[in-house]
Structure formats: structure tokens, C-alpha cells
Design a protein around this nucleic acid. Structure first.
Lengths: 140, 140
DNA sequence: GACACGTATAAGAGTTGCCTTATATAAGCC
DNA sequence: GGCTTATATAAGGCAACTCTTATACGTGTC
């Protein structure tokens, strides 16, 4: 899951945000990013390269310009990874105790798309204690 | 959005995957990670520290053990960031042009409402350029 | 108290990542 | 052709990250 590495940089995330509004030329992106982050044109170009080479964007030439646009594929991957955690903020944590008491918990941890280098998951053969109660999980 | 930095590391992502199945002690996590990644106990402990200090996990002591569990707050943040891109993979990219021509775009049933009543999908209402057609590179 | 276990921290080395300045390539215009 | 605009690449410096080994700290046991 190379994707998370790419998204680790705030400049790159910002560029994607900009492109989410629609195709933009390298120059347009550069102007905005320079204004916001105060970095040089080559620096922005390098970030664009990373995004391009990692599949987050597509580019097409229009004269001397390069028009960048979001390619959602890697983001989709990230979204898929998050999938397994969705249950953690979709339920009333406070009510969890009750749920457990009823022995009625839902089965989570269905698939694992581990990016681990080696073999598969050695599933914790404990109780699958899904979403537990965290003392105070901030929810907004 | 510190969260993406934390998730940039494959070991940390794996640890979260493990914890997604339920609370685990530092030792249990360490055993699995050591087996899969071949790194030392202190290395795992340091990753656990990062996860702890960045709010991805909670810890509670049980005797000499430290029991770690997922805290979803930061993941929720990541999910919220992704929100703006959801529209990019919920529509038929190839048909987009046609669809626009027919002016039929808007009301597409959002489909996939499987389990979670996640936040309302505020589709990216990018005017024109939105999701364009490209060859989607699914993997790299 | 002494010792083993479970876990964390400290200090240092190697690697990776991002930024800068300088420069190259290509297109547009006169 | 020669100049300007648009964008990319190259090379080097510095900071940040992650690993390792060594060690400290708290807990349970005898």
C-alpha cells in the first residue's frame, strides 16, 4: 500500500484537493501551492511527479502545458483499507457494553488485505473483541 | 492531518489491522510483527508509541502488560478527508460525457449502502472537469 | 530481597525524503 | 532564429524516520 506514503505529505494532499475541483495545469497548481506553502516551482513539480508516478493523477499535454487530474484508483485502495475500521465509529460506543452483554456482537474482521511482506495473518485466536470501548473516543 | 504520516508505515498499518480484531497486549503484537517483518522488540515498541501518541490507540495496563486497542478518532479524520473523492469512483467514468450531455447526471442512486450509514455522500460537485476518463491504473 | 518477565526508553547508525539552485527541454511568439 | 513561457530533471544539503543494541523500570514469584 504505497498510497499512504504518497499521502503522507501535506503538499501532495493539498494538490489532490485542488485537483478534486477539476483538472488544472501544473502552473496553476504551482501558483497556489507556492502561495500556501512557500516552496519553489521545482519542489511542486517533484510532488506532481510523485503523484503522477504513483497513479494518483493523470496528465495530458495541451501545448506546452500539462493538465493534471485526479485518478481515484489509489484513493480507492486507501478507502478499502479503512473499510475494516468503519465499524469503530459507526456504533454507539457507550452502548457497546450492552451489546456485548447480549452476546450479540457483529462479526468484524472479515477479510484482510494485509500488505504485510510475508504470509497471511496469524489470526489472533482470542476472542474477536471488535470495537471495544475507549474511555473517551472523541466523536464529532 | 498528522494521521497520514502515521499510516505511512506498513508496520503501523499492520498493527492497526491486528488491533482491529480486538485488544492485544504489546507482547502479542510484537510476536506477530516480529514474525512478519523481522524487526526487534524495541522497534515494535516504538511503533506502538507512535500509534499511542498520535491517538490511534488507547492503552490500559493489566499487571505488567499493556493492552492496546484501536481508537478510531484519527482514522475517522482520514475517512473524512477521503470524503471529497468518493464521487470519483462512484460513477461510470466512461459514460460521464454522455451522461453530462443528457443532463442526467445528478440523481444517480448512490448504490452500495450496505452496512454503515456513513456521512451523507456529499458528492464532489465539480463543475465540468470532474472525473475524466483515463485508463485507470488499478495497480502498481 | 533476588530474579525473571513484560515493556519502554536511550543513543547511535543508516536510509529516505524534501527542498534548494542550476539547468534542460519543448512550445509559442516576434 | 532568438527570446520568453511552461514544465521537468539533476545534484547536493539537511532533516526526519526507522532500525539496532544496550539498558531501565515496573510487576509477579520464590
Amino acid at each position: 500500500m504505497y498510497a499512504f506514503d504518497v499521502l503522507g505529505d501535506p503538499v501532495r494532499r493539498r494538490i489532490l484537493e485542488l485537483l478534486a475541483a477539476g483538472e488544472q495545469s501544473s502552473g496553476e497548481v504551482t501558483a497556489t501551492i507556492r502561495a500556501e506553502f512557500g516552496i519553489s516551482q521545482p519542489a511542486v513539480s517533484q510532488h506532481l511527479r510523485v503523484l503522477r508516478e504513483s497513479g494518483f493523477t493523470t496528465v495530458r499535454a495541451e501545448g506546452a502545458r500539462r493538465l493534471y487530474a485526479v485518478d481515484a484508483a489509489p484513493l480507492k485502495e486507501v478507502d478499502a483499507w479503512l473499510e475494516r475500521f468503519r465499524g469503530f465509529w459507526n456504533q454507539r460506543l457507550d452502548a457497546l457494553g450492552t451489546e456485548l452483554a447480549r452476546g450479540k456482537r457483529a462479526r468484524r474482521a472479515r477479510d484482510h488485505q494485509a500488505t504485510a511482506p510475508h504470509h497471511q495473518t496469524t489470526g489472533p485466536d482470542h476472542q474477536t473483541t471488535g470495537p471495544h470501548h475507549t474511555t473517551e473516543s472523541s466523536d464529532d
